[in-house]
Nucleic acid binder design. Structure first.
Lengths: 414, 414
DNA sequence: TACACCTCTGAATCTTCCA
DNA sequence: CTGGAAGATTCAGAGGTGT
């Protein structure tokens, strides 16, 4: 366990009492739902006035339980802090009312829909495929790091990046410069993240391999933590269970505090956190693999080349189809989390047993061939991938422009 | 207007009073939200016991309004009938409680999430991209016509076509015939419809628009009507607005009754029903993929680069996320059937209207930069893709080996 | 603090233009 | 003339601004 992560045993109401007021930046919670007797309401005649008391009778116990804890959460939250409440499907309306009461309806930010696809069995119903997460803050001045996604396929991205103005009739038109040409409108990162999140469940195979039972996907927690906290912020999960929130927080450089009333859960969470970065980043990567296979991505880079893909080999992604006098030419693509020397080492280890006289490594990030030329085995030749080549071309272009003093045909729109 | 469709003017509570008990098969409603004074709750100290009365104070008026009408709806519903309640975002929790009260929590069927993409501008927030529809029935014996969608791309369709059984450990395995071959399992209809519906929002430019606020797409109503009613059934919309529900019902051969308190709305709805039509949305007709011109393969080559994909443009596959003094840097990947000059021309045509000072073309096949350097527009810079780089490295390696006379350490294995 | 007004935006259509 | 690609247009929601 790192010094910045703690798991405490106990009822979160009591344990939170020891937390300093205003010291927590982000709270995520996914409390258990108390199933109680269905408590049928009797009055159904149309004469009688509607009374809210009836509705509440059956939910009181749960509501009180949550209400008390929400108040304590409110106390420990920093003024810029936020709470994400992952609802049981049967209680989302109750939860929202309690959140409105404790944090104020004006501090409601989003109803997040976590959408996933599930294995289906035909039944007389719509297949449940979502869960709800409520996002409230303590005030207007909350921490929020915008995230961006891809534009819709039907959007003319190339044209909405032009500057626009209102004409005399109030109509929106594209602005033109003195030469009658379109004026670019700076750079955009993409569409702001919406409140519907399409995140798959953890790949069942991944769960099997790591031995963890199915749980909230790390990606879901990652997303929440990225949005509503900064590095070194304190993340609290009052019902931490096996500690997924803590793992995600730790991996993103946040401090984390978990509480659970079950000794088993605390033990599991603590064990998971002993070496979070190494083992858990594997889990995290496996979770990502459920999204799209990293190996497939790597091979996509080789399109146009005649190659034979290699499965189940950490060092080699493919061989070139033709040989060099009987020797195969192995290829490896740099992975997102790897440096060039690391990738080269993997490649070299796998390929040297096959006496390959030439090994090719496709580099995707800075620190290409020249930076490491001396450290790499002589058989390994590093080739720039398109990402790297393009960045170099742009850098070179800028350098030359600056030298020519040809800058600023249009000033940035700022 | 067909004989089977009627639009009545008035408060739905009164008008519904004239409807025969148990005669309506399906009710859809999307009532207006009553914005009331924000009515701040005062007690926030932790000493005080939580009382539900506080929460309700500000919602009472709206709740009563809805409650009365829900009871009337319950009365006119057929025993096999269903109600779909389209919620205002700010009142969904209130609505669900009222529905639980009137129809019983045991008759809750689904919380349907209507998910859509829309113009945006939320800079400090998650972009709202969904609305909620609650689906309740009068009893367990409700009308339900299952709908099916396409299997997701990641589903192994081969596998689901095989018959399965439980082995001795209760594990699900594929059944094999005496020859050890898979047994087909008959025809599958597809994936049962889930409770998250991805239906395009009514676009500002859509001809379907009547100018009436909160107008819903016909397709959304069609889906509901198909699921929960049969031909000649009676569909009721007590807040029919511009009459989308009636249009959808009529098009599907249902009888329809609409009520609205606004004369304008009734007039619009009646006019619309003279020739009930559904506009053909290109997006729905063609599917989202039809807009994609930068194919996955091309974009896969750019991994590791910060870029924004560009669809709907034959010349440009992506823009680099950073800019050159306000100007965008377009990228194009050579297509399998294209020569470099052809690809460069496409790129140049599209990008020159945007005054791009630098355009990047990723080459995948022989005949790279030098072969055409003189023919290409000066703005276009050609960058070798991995396939090309690798082939060049191998060729260079062979050349050098040959020069060194070091060939044939091992003879070719063939 | 409250509210009216202004600005920015992007999904998806409609319109125009070109081969 | 036709089909498709490129360009123009619309409009409501959310934040920001100013009174």
């Amino acid at each position: 366990m790192t010094a910045n992560t703690e798991v405490l045993l106990g009822d979160c109401l009591e344990v939170m009492g020891q937390i300093e007021t205003g010291s927590v930046n982000l709270v995520y919670l996914d409390p258990p739902f108390f199933t109680q007797k269905s408590h049928k309401l009797v009055t159904r005649d149309r004469q009688r006035e509607f009374s809210f008391d009836d509705v509440w009778a059956s939910h009181t116990e749960y509501a009180h339980f949550i209400f008390e804890r929400l108040q304590e959460i409110k106390r420990v939250l920093h003024p810029t802090g936020a709470i994400f409440f992952h609802c049981d499907r049967n209680a989302s309306h109750i939860v929202r009312i309690l959140l409105d009461e404790v944090f104020g309806a004006e501090n409601f930010r989003s109803e997040i829909i976590w959408h996933y696809r599930r294995w289906s069995n035909a039944q007389k119903n719509l297949l449940p495929a979502h869960q709800t997460i409520y996002f409230y803050t303590l005030s207007d001045g909350y921490t929020f790091n915008p995230q961006f996604g891809e534009y819709s396929a039907s959007t003319n991205v190339d044209q909405i990046w032009q500057r626009r103005r209102r004409d005399e009739n109030g109509k929106s038109v594209y602005e033109l410069d003195e030469n009658g040409e379109a004026i670019p409108n700076g750079v955009k990162k993409g569409v702001p993240l919406s409140d519907v999140w399409d995140i798959p469940y953890l790949n069942p195979k991944a769960a099997e391999r790591t031995g963890y039972p199915t749980q909230k996907p790390v990606l879901l927690l990652e997303q929440i933590i990225k949005i509503a906290s900064n590095e070194n912020d304190l993340v609290l999960d009052p019902f931490c269970g096996s500690g997924t929130t803590l793992v995600a927080a730790t991996l993103l450089g946040r401090r984390a505090l978990g509480i659970d009333i079950s000794e088993d859960a605390v033990a599991i969470a603590r064990r998971r956190l002993v070496a979070p970065t190494k083992t858990e980043s594997n889990l995290l990567l496996l979770g990502r693999d459920a999204y799209k296979s990293a190996d497939e991505e790597a091979l996509a880079l080789l399109q146009g080349l005649a190659f034979v893909p290699v499965q189940r080999n950490r060092g080699i992604d493919a061989f070139v189809t033709s040989d060099i006098n009987g020797y195969l030419v192995p290829i490896r693509v740099q992975r997102p989390e790897e440096s060039i020397p690391e990738a080269a080492l993997h490649l070299y280890r796998s390929a040297s047993t096959k006496n390959a006289p030439l090994m090719i490594l496709v580099a995707l990030r800075e620190g290409g061939y020249f930076a490491f030329a001396n450290e790499l085995p002589p058989e390994v030749v590093v080739v720039d991938g398109p990402a790297l080549s393009i960045n170099k071309v742009i850098a070179e272009f800028l350098r030359r422009r600056e030298a020519d003093g040809m800058l600023q045909a249009h000033p940035p729109s700022a």
